[in-house]
Design a protein around this nucleic acid. Structure first.
Length: 569
RNA sequence: GCCCCCAUAGCUCAACGGACAGAGCGAUUCCCUUCUAAGGAAUAGAUAUCAGUUCAAUUCUGAUUGGGGGUACCA
């Protein structure tokens, strides 16, 4: 990358004034008035060398070796040094990116590192809501971004089909729904069956809180599921399958897939075994009939791994899950858990216990990516109990309907645009900020939205199609004076691989999203101001190359976000 | 009580310690006999409060206020 080369040049210049620096800050200034790259190195050195920053800057620049890529170097006010890339260099880059070769540098983990990303993890018997949708959008995008920077990525998904919430749901069906009614429900669509389960859960929850007898029965059912015996087991298996089928449909719909789906029930027994082993090693201890980890020693919370009934808690099962995750695919370099921040305490504790069990295997390998909630703008936090859940598939359907009503396009295209609208509305935000979900904004087709990017791609395609393949040649346009809009676009396009690398480092798909928006905006202004086809050569060719590069960057970038492009809108 | 996270324009969000804090939506006003107007241009509009560190603070530190989450047998 040009950035690294520039940094090397600067280091050489510094050596000539007897300064050795390991790292040189090189940034893209916010304002294009300050060039393509800027460094604050002389400001930083000011105090160290006891000289005025401006003076240092002058010395650095006087020793700076000229090269073709850099057109101009400037020293400004307190001591910034700004660099301008030459049109010649920019256009040469253009011809590279316009032939669809993206040179993503490998991630800091190093190429061919093995990373597991664990995401989605919905619980059965509940709706897959927009919180899960944000999760799966982030997870899927991270997978693709990590792959782009040359890591080996394993996609895993831990689906909960055991636990009290499921017992509550089954309790309602067992005691309040007749066999006849159930037969009717079985005939209904998957969607309807799922919404039935949702309602059953809400009813069971109320009964658990208000009715002592029901509470006892629910706990009993919970035990049956853990022991995998008793008369609810058939009902449990049947309804679990409904859920898994329903999830599979959603995964497919949002273009996700998993190398491994871990069902929670698989880890109960082994979880107990590992917890007992941990007790022998003195990592866990007995307390009030339960097996707990005393976190005080490490400044952590105390958490239960096996409850007083002998059942493993979520913590207990996590130990078995980790064991499996870290062995099934060989050694992992990193395991990233995409989970909301309410589980921060849980992860800190389980990570610590795992580390105490096997330091070599787990230490510094586990990471909790605490992406934030999706809250409803008006109603606040979603909760199954309150019945204010926005289901993922419902939301996508709404977007699709809106598109079909407003535009003349096929249902396949409408589906791709709907997915783009909804996913992008989540991905454009930073993962660590809460989203105030707004229905209209989430299915927005204009402005900073997925469809806007798709539209820009289609626009590019339309121009290129009209031009015909023969016109898009990779000629050398050296010496050509670029228009301002052309240069602005080019400057942004050349940053693509840098942005992708940054987004991998920071686990932040939103960097890619906002970058693409920037690309699209800049292209659209260029498009508005300049004719592409109806101009003379070689200008026409340069503009076509710009158009092609824009299309390719948008397509690749959208792929990294888990969004498809369409050919016509 | 204790611990963690957050606070930027009317709304929703950006901004590696840097140079006049960027967008989108909404509002007002323009631009389709033209390569797709799901587009473009223009105007108005913001760093919660108080200290500190720094050549430079939305960014770091400490308080204050206001939100969110967690804090042993749920997941």
């Amino acid at each position: 990358m040009i950035k690294d080369k520039l940094a090397d040049h600067l280091k050489t210049s510094l050596k000539k004034i007897d300064v050795t620096e390991k790292e040189i800050n090189l940034d893209h200034p916010q304002n294009p008035r300050f060039g393509d790259f800027t460094t604050n190195i002389s400001l930083r050195l000011g105090k160290k060398l006891g000289k005025k920053p401006l003076e240092i800057a002058n010395q650095i620049v006087s020793h700076f070796t000229k090269n073709q890529a850099i057109e101009k170097v400037e020293i400004v006010k307190p001591g910034f040094i700004n660099f301008w890339l030459s049109d010649k260099y920019l256009t040469s880059i253009l011809t590279n990116s316009a032939i669809s070769k993206f040179d993503f540098p490998s991630h800091h983990l190093g190429s061919n590192k093995k990373i597991m990303i664990e995401f989605a993890h919905p619980n059965t018997h509940k709706l897959f809501h927009i919180g899960h949708l944000r999760n799966i959008s982030i997870g899927e995008s991270l997978v693709r971004i990590f792959e782009a920077v040359e890591n080996k990525v394993i996609r895993s998904n831990y689906q909960g089909e055991v636990g009290l919430h499921i017992a509550k749901c089954l309790w309602y069906i067992k005691y309040k729904i007749s066999e006849k009614e159930l037969t009717e429900i079985r005939k209904k669509s998957l969607q309807e069956r799922m919404s039935f389960l949702g309602k059953a859960y809400a009813k069971g929850q109320v009964a658990y809180d208000e009715d002592e007898k029901a509470k006892k029965e629910i706990i009993e059912i919970n035990g049956m599921i853990y022991k995998q015996s008793g008369d609810v087991l058939r009902l449990w298996k049947e309804t679990v399958k409904w859920s898994f089928d329903y999830f599979a449909e959603i995964y497919k719909r949002v273009y996700s897939k998993f190398d491994r789906l871990y069902p929670e029930s698989e880890f109960a027994r082994r979880g107990v075994e590992i917890a007992n082993l941990a007790e022998k090693k003195g990592i866990l201890k007995r307390s009030q009939g339960a097996l707990v980890f005393d976190g005080k020693l490490y400044g952590l919370d105390t958490r239960v791994f096996i409850n007083s009934l002998g059942y493993p808690t979520y913590e207990g099962k996590e130990l078995a899950l980790a064991e499996k995750e870290f062995s099934e695919f060989g050694e992992l370099d990193k395991c990233i858990h995409v989970v909301t921040p309410e589980q921060t305490s849980f992860f800190k504790v389980t990570f610590k216990v795992e580390e105490l069990l096997d330091e070599k295997k787990y230490k510094n390998k586990q990471y909790h990516l605490a992406y934030e909630w999706v809250k409803l703008k008006k109603l606040g936090k979603m909760s199954s109990r309150m019945g204010n859940i926005v289901a993922a598939d419902w939301l996508i359907d709404q977007a699709k309907e809106k598109i079909l009503k407003k535009f003349n396009c096929g249902t396949d295209t409408a589906e791709k645009i709907a997915i783009a609208a909804v996913k992008y509305s989540f991905l454009k935000n930073g993962v660590f900020s809460q989203i105030a979900f707004d229905f209209d904004e989430s299915i927005s087709l204009e402005g900073n939205s997925g469809p806007y990017l798709q539209y820009t791609y289609v626009r590019c395609g339309s121009v290129l199609k009209k031009a015909g393949q023969a016109d898009v040649r990779l000629t050398n346009a050296g010496g050509l004076q670029l228009e301002r809009e052309e240069r602005d676009l080019l400057r942004i396009l050349v940053n693509f691989s840098e942005v992708v690398q940054e987004s991998a480092k920071k686990l932040s798909p939103n960097l890619v999203a906002n970058y693409l928006f920037d690309v699209a905006q800049t292209f659209n202004l260029f498009y508005q101001k300049h004719k592409i086809l109806d101009v003379k050569e070689p200008i026409k060719n340069i503009r076509l190359l710009l158009t092609k590069a824009t299309a390719e960057v948008i397509k690749e970038g959208l792929y990294l976000l888990g969004i498809k492009t369409v050919e016509k809108m």
